[in-house]
Design a protein around this nucleic acid. Structure first.
Length: 521
RNA sequence: CGGGGCGUAGCUUAGCUUGGUAGAGCGCGUGGUUUGGGACCACGAGGUCGGAGGUUCAAAUCCUCUCGCCCCGACCA
C-alpha cells in the first residue's frame, strides 16, 4: 500500500497478495487471529464451554503424546521415575510457603463443598461444606513435599528424583488456546538432594535436557539462562528458563527449572540426618514443561497455509494421497498406496517406525491435500495411475512452498524417507534460528532501546521489536520502569560468559553482562 | 477487575443509523457432470438474529440488564 516508486516490486507485491493462502488473516496482518485460525484449521483444539478451558483434539493431543513420550524417555535416562500425587491440596499445606502463596493465591481454584443437593425449586447446589477447603493444584510442591517429608530420613534416602505427568489449574484472566489456559497439561519434576551443589546441578541438568528436547525434537531454537528476581518462580532461589521467539517476535517461555534452596523443605519438613549425624533440610528442585509447547510450535513454525510440524513430533509423518481419476484404476492405486505405506512403516526415522497414513477418504484430491497442508504433516505423497506404471511418486515437503513437488522413484523414496524427514526437521530449526537471529539486536543506548520496542502505528501495532541484548545494572527498579513504559521485560540472563562487562544503558551504572529483553507471552 | 471491540446457519458475514417479521458466500446432504487437485450444475437441509426484560400494532434493528468471545492493561507456563 505504500509502494509507489517501483512498479516491479508493486507487481510482485500484488501477485503475492492475490495468491490465496489457506489461513486468513496472514501472520503479518493479524498475528493473534492467525494463531487461532491455524489451531482451528489444523484441528488441534477448540475452546470449550468452560471459560478458559480447551478441548484438545486428536491431532493436537497426538503432538502432545509424542512430546510426552520423548521427554519421558529423557527423564528416565537421567534417573528420574514417574509417580502420581493428588489433584487436591489441603489449604493448610498450600499455605506453608509464604512466597509461594503470594504468587499463586490469585489463581487458585478452591473446592469448598462435597455434595450436590436439589433445593426446593429442584435446583442443584453445593450442600456439604468441607472442614478444610482444598486447593486444586496450580503446581504440586507442597503436596509432594508432604510425601517427601515422610520418605526422607537419612542422606541415604537421597536423592529423590520423581516426575509426574498431570493436569493443573490456574485461574487465568486472559486465556489463549495452548498458551495460557485455565487447565493445562504438564510434567512437573520434583527432586530432593543432599547438598546445595547437587540440587543446583540437577536444575542445570534439566535445563540442558529441556534445551536438547526443544532444539532436537521441536526444532525450536532457544536462549537459556536465569530469570531476574521479579520473574522468578514464587518460592524459588533461582529460576532457569528457555526462551523461544514467536514469529511476531515476542518471547515465549518454553520451560522452567527451579532451584528451590531449602525454602520448600523447611515449609514441608523435608529433613534428613546428614553424614555428620545432624538434622538438615533437603535441597529441592522443581521443573516443568507444558502443553504451551504445542502453541510454541504453532507460533515458531506455522505459515500462512497453516501448521508446519517438525517431523519428530508429527502424529503422522507421511500421508499418502491416492489420486484416483478413473474408477477402473482406483483399486490398483489404492493397493499400491497400501503397499508403499507398509514399506515406509518398516523404515525408521530416528529410532522409531515412520508414522504413515493413507488418506482413503472419498473426497476431492485438492481438498484432502489442503487439509494435510493445514495440519502441517511433513511429507505428502501422491500416487496416481500414471505412477503405477512408471514406479514414481510425487513428493511434497511441508517446509517448501505448497505448490512445489518432486517426482522421485518409489525405491528412492523408500530408501530416503528418513533422510528427507531429517532434512525437514533440520531446515525448520535453521529457518527458525535465522528468524530469531535476524530479530535479535545488540542495543547500546536507551533511545535505541525505546525505539526498537515502540511500534510505528500505536493504534494498531505492527509486528516489531524482537530480542534486545542490552546492559543493565541489575536493579529491579529499572526493570520495573521499562516494563511500565514498554511492556518489555528481561526474559533471560544468560549463564555463559558470552558477554563483556559494560554500563547499564538506562543508568550508566556498571553492568556485569548483557541480558535479553523482549515483549513476551 | 479496568479500557476498547464484537455476538445473525458449522464458518465468514449483509441487514441495524431511518422498526414491517432474515439474505448471501463457503461448508453440509442428494443427484449428475468432472477428476494429477481446494472443480462445475441442479435441487435441498440448516437461523426463536447470544440471553432476559421493556417500548411498540410490529424488534435482528430502539432502551435496560445480563452472558460470552476477542484485543489492550494488571497476572502468568
Amino acid at each position: 500500500m505504500r509502494q509507489f516508486n517501483c512498479s516491479a516490486s508493486r507487481m510482485a507485491k500484488s501477485a503475492e497478495i492475490s495468491t490465496k493462502t489457506a489461513i486468513t488473516p496472514r501472520r503479518n496482518e493479524d498475528f493473534p487471529e492467525w494463531y487461532q485460525q491455524v489451531i482451528r484449521a489444523a484441528e488441534l483444539a477448540e475452546p470449550s464451554d468452560v471459560r478458559g478451558c480447551m478441548v484438545i483434539r486428536p491431532w493436537g493431543y497426538g503432538i502432545w503424546e509424542n512430546m510426552q513420550r520423548q521427554l519421558d524417555a529423557m527423564f528416565r535416562a537421567t534417573g528420574h521415575r514417574n509417580a502420581y500425587f493428588p489433584l487436591f491440596i489441603p489449604l493448610s499445606y498450600f499455605a506453608k510457603e509464604a512466597e509461594h502463596v503470594e504468587g499463586f493465591a490469585k489463581e487458585c481454584a478452591v473446592v469448598t463443598h462435597s455434595r450436590l443437593e436439589a433445593d426446593a425449586d429442584g435446583k442443584l447446589g453445593p450442600a456439604s461444606a468441607l472442614t478444610e477447603p482444598l486447593v486444586v493444584r496450580p503446581t504440586s510442591e507442597t503436596i509432594i513435599g508432604a510425601s517427601y517429608a515422610k520418605w526422607v530420613q537419612s542422606y541415604r534416602d537421597l536423592p529423590i528424583l520423581i516426575n509426574q505427568w498431570a493436569n493443573v489449574v490456574r485461574w487465568e484472566m486472559r486465556p489463549r488456546l495452548f498458551l495460557r489456559t485455565t487447565e493445562f497439561l504438564w510434567q512437573e519434576g520434583h527432586t530432593v538432594h543432599e547438598t546445595e551443589l547437587e540440587a543446583r546441578a540437577e536444575a542445570r541438568l534439566i535445563l540442558d535436557v529441556y534445551e536438547r528436547f526443544v532444539r532436537d525434537h521441536l526444532a525450536v531454537p532457544v536462549l537459556t539462562g536465569a530469570k531476574s528476581e521479579s520473574e522468578r518462580f514464587p518460592g524459588a532461589v533461582q529460576t532457569l528458563t528457555l526462551e523461544a521467539m514467536a514469529q511476531d517476535r515476542k518471547a515465549i517461555q518454553a520451560g522452567t527449572s527451579h532451584f528451590l534452596g531449602q525454602n520448600f523443605s523447611r515449609a514441608s519438613g523435608i529433613q534428613f540426618q546428614n553424614r555428620e549425624g545432624q538434622q538438615e533440610f533437603g535441597w529441592t528442585t522443581s521443573w516443568g514443561m507444558t502443553t504451551r509447547l504445542v502453541g510454541t510450535i504453532v507460533m515458531t513454525h506455522g505459515d500462512d497455509d497453516g501448521l508446519v510440524l517438525p517431523p519428530r513430533i508429527a502424529p503422522t509423518q507421511i500421508v499418502i494421497l491416492p489420486i484416483t481419476p478413473k474408477e477402473e484404476t482406483r483399486a490398483a492405486v489404492m493397493e499400491s498406496c497400501d503397499k508403499l505405506a507398509k514399506e515406509l512403516r518398516e523404515t525408521r526415522y530416528v529410532d522409531l517406525a515412520i508414522e504413515v497414513e493413507v488418506d482413503r477418504r472419498d473426497l476431492g484430491g485438492g481438498i484432502k491435500n489442503w487439509e494435510w497442508i493445514k495440519k502441517g504433516v511433513p511429507l505428502r505423497i501422491e500416487i496416481g495411475p500414471r505412477d503405477l506404471a512408471s514406479g514414481n511418486v510425487m513428493v511434497s515437503r511441508r517446509d517448501q512452498p505448497v505448490k512445489s513437488k518432486e517426482l522421485i522413484s518409489t525405491r528412492e523414496l523408500r530408501s530416503r524417507a528418513s533422510e528427507i524427514l531429517a532434512s525437514i526437521q533440520q531446515n525448520l530449526f535453521e529457518r527458525a534460528k535465522e528468524f530469531r537471529d535476524e530479530h535479535t539486536r545488540v542495543i547500546n543506548s536507551k533511545t535505541e532501546f525505546y525505539d526498537f520496542f515502540t511500534p510505528k502505528n500505536a493504534a494498531k501495532p505492527e509486528i516489531h521489536g524482537g530480542f534486545a541484548l542490552a546492559h543493565w545494572n541489575g536493579l529491579g527498579e529499572v526493570e520495573a520502569q521499562i516494563k511500565n513504559d514498554l511492556k518489555v521485560t528481561i526474559r533471560v540472563i544468560p549463564l555463559d560468559d558470552s558477554s563483556e562487562p559494560g554500563s547499564c544503558i538506562f543508568t550508566g551504572e556498571p553492568s556485569r553482562r548483557r541480558v535479553i529483553w523482549a515483549k513476551s507471552y
